[in-house]
Computed example of a mutant assay.
Amino acid sequence: MGRAGKALRQVLEVHNISQNQLAVAMDIGRSSINRWVNENRDPSAEAVIEIIEALEKINSAAARDFLLLYLGRFILNDNQT
């Protein structure tokens, strides 16, 4: 487990976003965010999209950083072609 959780934890720390802020932006319970950040559970594909959308509302740089940390090598490879 973990790539999304690790990326999310790092983004929240770097951009000083609380788990509660993200939970409110996503309209879900903070416990879900906590499970992802602590790598107890991976977010579904739909939840990853919702994470990106919520981060975009809070801080667009955080959304970009999450994408790069989570899908970095795929994004970078796509831009190189």
Results as ranks from 00 to 15, higher is better:
residue 46 E to N: 13
residue 68 L to S: 04
residue 49 I to R: 14
residue 25 A to E: 13
residue 46 E to I: 13
residue 28 I to C: 11
residue 51 I to H: 00
residue 60 S to F: 05
residue 64 R to F: 08
residue 46 E to C: 10
residue 47 A to Q: 09
residue 36 W to I: 00
residue 8 L to N: 03
residue 69 L to F: 08
residue 8 L to T: 00
residue 22 L to W: 00
residue 40 N to D: 08
residue 54 A to Q: 08
residue 29 G to T: 07
residue 50 E to P: 01
residue 61 A to S: 12
residue 58 I to Y: 01
residue 63 A to D: 02
residue 7 A to M: 05
residue 47 A to S: 15
residue 32 S to V: 14
residue 36 W to C: 01
residue 1 M to V: 08
residue 7 A to R: 03
residue 16 N to I: 03
residue 40 N to C: 08
residue 26 M to F: 09
residue 12 L to E: 06
residue 28 I to K: 07
residue 81 T to Q: 15
residue 81 T to H: 12
residue 67 L to D: 06
residue 59 N to Q: 00
residue 70 Y to Q: 08
residue 17 I to E: 06
residue 38 N to Q: 11
residue 56 E to P: 06
residue 29 G to P: 02
residue 78 D to K: 14
residue 24 V to T: 14
residue 27 D to L: 15
residue 78 D to M: 12
residue 68 L to D: 03
residue 25 A to G: 10
residue 46 E to Y: 01
residue 33 I to Y: 01
residue 28 I to E: 04
residue 78 D to W: 11
residue 52 I to A: 04
residue 4 A to H: 04
residue 61 A to M: 13
residue 7 A to I: 04
residue 17 I to V: 10
residue 71 L to V: 09
residue 63 A to F: 02
residue 23 A to H: 06
residue 16 N to G: 13
residue 12 L to D: 03
residue 6 K to Y: 02
